[in-house]
Amino acid sequence: MPIMTIKNRSSKISPGGVLTLPLSARKTLRMEPGKGTRVAVTMQKDSVLLQPDSSNSGSRVSPKGQMELLGEPRAVLEKASHRHYWLELDDEQQLVRLLPY
Rank of each mutant, 00 (worst) to 15 (best):
D90Q: 02
G16E: 12
K79P: 13
L29N: 06
A80C: 04
V61W: 13
R9C: 10
M1K: 10
L69H: 02
L95V: 06
T5I: 09
M43H: 12
V61Q: 09
D91P: 02
I13G: 00
T37Q: 14
Q93P: 00
R60F: 15
G34T: 04
P15H: 03
G58C: 01
M4Y: 06
T28K: 09
L77P: 06
K12D: 08
P100Q: 13
K7T: 04
V39M: 14
S57L: 08
Q93N: 01
D53T: 04
Q51N: 06
S47A: 04
S24I: 04
P2Y: 13
S62M: 07
E32D: 15
E68H: 08
E68T: 14
D91G: 00
T37K: 09
R60A: 15
H84Q: 15
L70C: 08
L29E: 07
K27H: 11
S47V: 03
L19H: 12
V48G: 05
A25Q: 07
S55R: 11
S81W: 11
K79R: 11
Q44N: 14
V39R: 11
M67F: 11
M43K: 08
K27F: 15
V48K: 04
L21T: 02
Y101L: 09
M4R: 04
L69C: 01
P63A: 00
T20S: 08
G58D: 08
L70E: 14
K27P: 07
Q66R: 10
D46N: 13
Y101I: 08
L99C: 14
M4V: 09
M43W: 10
L70Q: 12
W86Y: 07
L89Y: 13
L87S: 01
E88S: 05
L23F: 10
V96I: 03
H84Y: 09
S81L: 01
E32L: 09
L21S: 01
V48A: 03
G71H: 09
R30I: 10
G16W: 02
L21W: 14
D46Y: 12
R9V: 02
A40F: 15
L19I: 00
